[in-house]
Computed example of a mutant assay.
Amino acid sequence: MTTYPAPREHQESEFGLAELCGDGARMAPHWVTPAEPATAPVSPALIHGVRVPPASARLIAATAEYGV
């Protein structure tokens, strides 16, 4: 009896950069940028750090392969 391996499920981490860029290009026309007045530069003395929500940090950590 011959057995065949079950097909692997497509996971998010297996998507390629080209597919990600293509998805972004197709979605770009749907994004609307509101007209906001230009903001004045902020003094570096007023910048104390950046806070990233845990969900966003996990998302960025999962995309590390795209930065290589």
Rank of each mutant, 00 (worst) to 15 (best):
M1Q: 09
T2S: 11
T3Y: 14
P5H: 11
A6H: 11
A6W: 04
A6I: 10
P7Q: 15
R8T: 12
E9Y: 10
E9W: 04
H10G: 07
S13K: 15
S13F: 12
F15C: 06
G16R: 08
L17R: 12
L20E: 02
C21S: 10
C21L: 14
G22H: 05
G22V: 05
G24N: 09
A25I: 08
R26T: 03
R26A: 06
R26K: 15
A28R: 13
A28K: 09
P29E: 05
W31K: 06
W31Y: 09
W31V: 14
V32R: 11
A35V: 13
A35I: 06
A35M: 13
A35S: 14
P37R: 10
A38T: 14
A38N: 05
T39V: 12
A40Q: 04
A40C: 04
V42M: 02
I47S: 03
G49N: 02
G49M: 02
V50I: 14
R51F: 03
V52I: 15
P53M: 03
P54G: 03
P54R: 07
S56R: 15
A57L: 15
A57I: 04
I60L: 13
A61M: 07
A62H: 04
T63F: 09
T63H: 10
A64Q: 12
E65T: 10
E65R: 15
Y66H: 05
Y66F: 15
V68R: 08
